[in-house]
Amino acid sequence: MSKTAYDCVKIVRGNDRPTSIDLIKGMFTEFVELHGDRRYADDAAVIGGVGYLGERPVTVIGIEKGHTVKERAFRRFGAPMPEGYRKALRLMKQAEKFGRPVICFVDTSGAYCGVDAEERGQGEAVAENLVTMMGLKVPVISIIIGEGGSGGALALAVADRVWMFENAVYSVISPEGCAAILWKDAACAPEAAESLKITAKDSLKFGIIEEMISENNLGKPEFYQELKTKIESELSELSGLSVEELTQKRYMRFRSLGRFERSE
């Protein structure tokens, strides 16, 4: 029997799955982690920094869940605070200044949900990232490596290329949240997951992502090597575009992502 959408959800929530830190270690060299949003704090749920991808200096930003219970508590289970998104924003603008491409790894059930996050402007932080990423003058590639939870994921996924790992999920709302709101029963999450069409295959079919990355060798050296080669070749292509072409294509990429009917 093939995997259901909710099987994928369970797989990507597993604590032995590679996280952003593993991907950075596996693919980038001379990585230097950079902290803080210069406004309020440093958010452990978002890691960022500079490093080499092959010969090329790049900015890397990833949502980090951690593996152990202790790590996961420290990383707030990969649910970023507004300062996490503002750190990402700062690093993206820095990348733009120095002409470096940006690579984002997305793995979150959603932006952190709490009184402090709301009072520090979670909505504003996400909104600001969407606008800034749309106009960023350097190539951006976002890869959803596990959970792509709603606006909190999109805030790092307004990119020239959006890819998903084979078992990753990308959704407007968590299956549990959807089930609770629509059917008043969080136990209907598997059905909600199915209805919401959250798998990489669905996203690919709908044209919301460009590629689905096979997980056959997930976490092994050859997996990282292959993914690294793939990102490098994509960056070479994107680097050949003028800033106008790049931002126009990015705008049009998202401009086309709506489904509706036109009646006379």
């Binding site: 606008v131 606006g151 307004v158 407007v172 959250i198 705008y251 998202f254 401009r255 709506g258």
Partner: peptide
Amino acid sequence: EGLFSLMQMARTSG
């Protein structure tokens, strides 16, 4: 509308 509704956030921001 699933991910299509999420994508409207990016479209409108653009």
